[in-house]
């Protein structure tokens, strides 16, 4: 069941107090998204199942640390999921992107639960991504969504690893400068 940003913030506040009903509401509102994130990085459902459990146990234990003033609730949750999935993915799997090219598409701006502030943040980030050369943009998205290392990107593109590192850092600097923050 979707929760607005404010409802999610309030629910996390109750989770921090040990409220299991609020925890169930957070799970219902976010588990499809977080499972989507970990499945995409890991490429294996069996691993994703384990990781998602650990992610929500972490959410339960860490909700007390969430600060709405410093990050949006979904970014905070997604960061926990991505970090745990990346830790796992780095040692386990390599996803075949050729099988799932749709994941490279930038999604549209049609999320009904997003508020105006979130939509604006997203629009600005995508505008900055679109200022990168197409190949660089693709690399940034490949890495973000699949956690590919520089070595894996280098093999894929048949380029030296230092070149890939330079590309990544310059692209990220460009995104930061474009966002102006």
């Amino acid at each position: 069941m979707p929760l607005s940003r404010q409802q999610l913030i309030e629910a996390l506040g109750r989770v921090a107090q040990g409220d299991q009903a609020a925890f169930a509401a957070v799970y219902a509102a976010t588990s499809l998204k977080l499972y989507g994130i970990v499945v995409r990085i890991l490429g294996r459902r069996d691993l994703a199942d384990e990781v998602l459990q650990e992610v929500y146990v972490r959410v339960w234990q860490s909700a007390v640390d969430y600060d709405a003033a410093t990050s949006s609730p979904i970014t905070w949750l997604a960061t926990i999921a991505r970090n745990r999935a990346l830790d796992e993915a780095k040692r386990k799997t390599m996803v075949s992107l050729e099988e799932r090219p749709e994941l490279l598409q930038l999604p549209g701006d049609d999320d009904p639960s997003a508020n105006l502030e979130e939509m604006e943040e997203r629009r600005r980030l995508y505008a900055c991504l679109n200022e990168l050369e197409p190949e660089k943009k693709e690399i940034v998205l490949l890495v973000y969504h699949y956690g590919l290392t520089r070595e894996e990107i280098a093999r894929r593109l048949n380029r030296p690893v230092p070149t890939v590192k330079t590309w990544l850092r310059r692209s990220l600097e460009q995104i930061k400068a474009c966002l102006g923050q």
């Binding site: 299991q20 499972y35 994130i37 499945v39 994703a48 929500y56 990050s71 979904i74 960061t79 997203r122």
Partner: peptide, 30 residues
């Protein structure tokens, strides 16, 4: 800072329904 900047990329990740037994397993763990 970078989590905040790149965070919006994860907001629109395609959703995937987790197996129904997972939440029960999580509740047991917590």
């Amino acid at each position: 800072g970078w989590e905040r900047r790149l965070g919006p990329l994860s907001w629109r990740t395609p959703e995937v329904e987790p197996p129904p037994h997972l939440f029960e397993a999580i509740l047991k763990k917590i």
